[in-house]
Design a protein around this nucleic acid. Structure first.
Lengths: 326, 326
DNA sequence: ATCGGTATCGATAACGTTTTCGAATCTTCC
DNA sequence: GGAAGATTCGAAAACGTTATCGATACCGAT
């Protein structure tokens, strides 16, 4: 900056004003300084800026891992950020299923102090928000954390899924639930139980199991479920990934989907339309959720008054992995 | 930091030494300060650190967009970064197919000045490396930019793919190439032509067309190709995404793959195993490429002497989208 | 000519670190 | 007991920016 100042024959203070478009500098000077800035290829130092003004115009999005679910969110968020004057940094806490807990909190704290003005988090653990730092959560968080949140109606979606299976005549319906520390997983299981109860169909506890949201863990639970002497005729998987791996397991056990087993998922990640057979599932508007989360974050930082909890609707999308019983 | 210093009864200089593990502070003091740091939940300000020492221990990975290809790279890179002492920030330049050119260069320049110590770029345009800033490219870049690079053997892979189609008896083979500003796309087309020439099979220029690497653009070229009176019996698509959309187009035109049309892709993104029929393709070790790129970057920063260009082998993976001709 | 008011600009003090280097204290050894 | 050397610590400068506020120049009106 001092280089620019010297070359343009002004002080650094003036350069700063030009860069930030502050009032109080002559039009001629503005143009001259901008010219020099362009020639010298000057870029302000983000670090120094944040040090001084406690703003960086950088937003973060923290995901546990880069899998299809968060990738969709990322897409939505990065589309929304364009033209907002912010930059978006995606950041993977790198912990797989419950690996280094607390680590994500620490690294976020590190970044938040100085690097980013706010963050949207797509992780199970809730984070205490420091002083001037804004965070919005995607997916419901457990407990009474007053965190601004955007999620979809997981409970209603699970009811939708279960009712669909019921309407196809299935009675012996299994459920592979997601990791239990995720509130969304709990809500989906609750929705499942509610729909079953409303239909007066008893749930056999031996065929509802926690499988986690990852491929590997879901596969082993699916294998157990399907090896049962009286295996379920339909399975409501906690998310698409585990639904897909359930279908894989079924195939490898000589079962064909949907003839021998109906499978329904949750999320509607792009993969679910691709698999064979195409997966019937519950759609969450993932990209839109990412976009809404980012917009909410921006509004929060700007201090606009608005609803701080957004719940988007879910929807049944019928493809080919379910079929009437018998 | 001054809070910590005051509470522990030492100077900020000493706290800094403790934080960075510098030599020259008594064991007792170290423990006392660390205790206070823990109690107060102190985290160093990245901005100030970078301002002073020109290091942040943060690495960036810049992708054009979050699609399956870059997501795999991201996975590999973020696995590699664990335990390296660095943090990884992913960053989408947000431009789709050639949207805002130069924008990626600018934002990288902005970050590089102060925020990150180095970056791996997964974008077509080559970036001039500033003074102390290291960047490594994934995928070959055109021109004589001496950028450290990790890529896979695109030419050999394309030969592999074409020879496979040839060995199945196909002679009328079409090619949908990637965006022409990508060196990898050019190499794949070159490999295709070489294999055809070596087999003494003339290539009909009307059935080799540029389709871009995106779904939409590939779809329209595929549609044109298949609408031809004497359409190709096999298509070598420039990447998996365009292969998949080619199969979609074929299906929508009443053609079945592989009976009426063989399709082979390139990349082996996870999706290609999922689609129906499962896609025969050329594998690039995407995750490994991401990991190698990150390792190369770290080594570069650390100043270790090593080979600065890594080329990984490609491999034919046969699934079900190709079948012998006639 | 003088004066109040406006534009325009620059010196300077932070912001939170790291590093250098000298001061102070402690050890060891003759 | 004293000097040399080792150890431990802190004062202060510097990194690149922004905000404040006083200084200067200019204007039109009396």
């Amino acid at each position: 900056m001092s280089d620019v100042a010297r070359t343009a024959g002004v002080s650094v203070a003036t350069v700063s004003k030009v860069v930030n478009g502050r009032y109080g500098v002559a039009q001629a000077t503005v143009e001259r300084v901008q010219q020099v800035i362009h020639e010298l290829g000057y870029e302000a130092s983000l670090g120094a800026q944040s040090l001084r003004s406690h703003r960086t115009n950088v937003l973060g999005i923290l995901v546990a891992e880069f899998e299809p679910f968060s990738t969709e969110l990322l897409k939505g968020a990065s589309r929304e950020v364009a033209g907002s004057g912010y930059q978006l940094l995606a950041y993977s806490s790198g912990d797989g299923e419950g690996a280094a807990i607390g680590w994500e909190r620490r690294s976020l704290a590190r970044l938040s102090g100085t690097l980013i003005d706010g963050a949207v988090i797509v992780t199970p653990t809730v984070i205490e928000t420091k002083d001037g730092f804004h965070v919005v959560a995607v997916d419901p968080h457990t407990g009474p954390s007053g965190l601004p949140t955007v999620d979809s109606d997981n409970f209603a979606g699970a009811v939708l899924a279960t009712n669909y299976l019921l309407s196809l005549g299935h009675r012996r319906i299994g459920h592979i639930s997601g990791r239990p520390d995720l509130e969304s997983a709990r809500l989906r299981e609750a929705g499942f139980r509610r729909a079953m109860a409303d239909a007066d169909v008893p749930v056999d506890e031996r065929i509802v199991r926690v499988g986690g949201f990852r491929v590997e863990s879901a596969a082993s639970t699916a294998a157990e479920l399907l090896a049962l002497p009286d295996r379920p005729t339909a399975i409501f998987a906690g998310n698409d990934l585990s639904a897909i791996s359930t279908m894989d397991v079924a195939r490898s056990m000589g079962l064909t989907v949907p003839d021998d087993l109906s499978v329904i998922g949750f999320d509607n990640v792009p993969e679910s339309a691709l698999v064979n057979p195409p997966l019937t599932t519950i759609m969450q508007p993932l990209q839109r959720m990412g976009a809404e989360a980012l917009r909410l974050l921006i509004d929060l930082i700007a201090g606009v008054e608005r609803d701080t909890h957004i719940r988007l609707p879910t929807e049944l999308v019928v493809r080919a992995s379910c079929r009437p019983y018998r």
